[in-house]
Amino acid sequence: MVGRKIEAVIFDWAGTVVDYGCFAPVQAFLKAFEKKGITVELEEVRRPMGLLKRDHIKTMLGYARINQLWLERYGHEPDDADIDELYIYFEELLMESLQKFTNPIPGVVELVEKLRQKGMKIGSTTGYTKSMMEVVAYHAKRKGYAPDFMIASDELKAGRPYPYMIFRNLTELDVFPPSAVIKVGDTVSDMQEGKNAGVWSVAVMKGSSELGLTEAEVASLPETVLQARLEQVYQKFKEAGADFIIESIDQLPQVIEDLEHHRDGVVQ
């Protein structure tokens, strides 16, 4: 029996279609906390990746280790004013360097062209704000990537893991039902967003924030070490409810073929 035709693919941005490894926000988060005298770890920065950036900071401040450091330094729980101050630092730092992290991930431009040739619409969601996306989208378009519709996390009542950005995509792209749509992302919050919206959720490992490696590092790591790292990422995505987990973005057409022929499963 032939499955439902996939009508649209909604991509995340950093770590999925641009900025291999999702490095643009990482240094900005690290430096923002440093300005407040708090040293955070890389894993703590990457764990909430994909959320609206103010929510990301609030989540980090809720981690036991960071919260304890804050209490020791300031003598009180971090409040909204503290979150706002950290966010201002973060945004300033990110905007200074964001343009440098807008190169399309290898294979993305060609993939999107193939999807469009098959009649699919291209949407997008992001943890970035509208002002951040003005920079990213402008430079990405000049380098060959532009979705049919884009929405930023601060343009709606709530960002991920809420499904509102995906719902706006479905409306603007005029696509229904959700089962005719795939959400592709590189973070746990991407998968949660997709599941909450009722669309198919596809996780990409190479180039992802969850893997957190540059393209050169992926190419140079011993195969056994790389596979061990990929297995860890795979388990995170599986626990997050990903419908499909692919090693790289160029495997997405196989997922689409499987879905359109009712072959559910995980591609790796």
Rank of each mutant, 00 (worst) to 15 (best):
A180H: 15
A197D: 05
K121G: 02
N169T: 00
F167S: 01
N169W: 03
G159P: 11
T125I: 12
V202P: 02
T129G: 00
Q99H: 12
A180F: 03
E113Q: 14
E193N: 13
K143N: 06
K114S: 14
A152T: 00
Q99L: 10
Y145I: 00
Y164M: 01
T129Y: 03
Y128S: 03
P147M: 05
E110D: 10
A180I: 00
D186A: 12
V202Q: 11
Y164E: 03
P177R: 13
P147H: 03
Q99E: 13
K121S: 07
D154T: 01
S153R: 08
L173E: 12
V175P: 00
G198M: 11
L115H: 12
V136Q: 11
K143A: 07
I105M: 06
A158S: 11
S131K: 14
R116S: 04
Y162N: 12
E134H: 14
G159T: 10
V202C: 10
E96P: 09
P104M: 01
P147T: 05
A140V: 04
M95P: 01
Y128P: 03
G144S: 07
M150Q: 05
S201L: 12
R116C: 01
F90D: 02
K195Y: 03
K114R: 15
L115D: 09
M150D: 01
P163W: 09
S131Q: 13
P177T: 08
T102C: 13
D148M: 09
K130W: 08
M191H: 05
M165Y: 11
M150G: 02
E92F: 05
E193W: 08
Y138G: 09
D186S: 11
T129V: 02
P178I: 01
Y164N: 04
L111D: 08
V135F: 13
T187C: 09
